[in-house]
Amino acid sequence: MLTHLRPALAMTLLFTLLTGIAYPLAMTGIAQAIAPEAANGSLIERDGKVIGSSLIGQGFSDPKYFWPRPSAAGKSGYDGTSSSGSNLGPTSKALMARIQGDIDKVKDGSAPVPTELVTASASGLDPHISPAAALYQVPRVARARGLPEATIRDLVLRQAEGRALGFIGEPRVNVLRLNLALDGIARRPQG
């Protein structure tokens, strides 16, 4: 074992310098040079202030905004320093009670509630909902804003993203971007 002591210690230190210091620092330098926006977290600013990241979901509860999926990140959800799923299993009483509570919250009319709108995501930071889940909320948002449903529905359809090449990924709407666009309508001078 002693004959291996020097190689073991030396190799551990050398590989720490190469793969633990040089590699991540070089990648940081390159990333900051070629793709600074992504490398710094794809942050969105409005009026010079950071209002979130286009990749990270954000909590909404005001009826005039579209709501995201339930979140188990942090104590009150959408905590960007504490990502987590609920980890509740399919026969959990706590899960069924939570889902029933979320159904009662979003239920609007007699149509069935979109499943993913009342199920928590894996990260607790899911920035998306499905177009169906956004369209489901159109009547509520329209009422709260005093705008015609058609205007809001058009906005949702414009913000919806499809599958890449027609089959990769899932159709989705970025909730924060959609809500920003909503605020954009409200800010536009009427006339």
Binding site: M27, Q32, A38, G41, S53, G80, T81
Partner: peptide, 30 residues
């Protein structure tokens, strides 16, 4: 490199403080 070009962060910053649309605070780890 491909991952950075596809949108992943690569920085040495601490958490970023964001003010949400509803006026709340969201810290986002980097």
């Amino acid at each position: 490199l491909a991952m950075v070009l596809l949108g992943l962060p690569q920085n040495l910053s601490g958490p970023v403080e964001a003010t949400t649309l509803e006026g709340g605070k969201q810290a986002i780890a980097q």
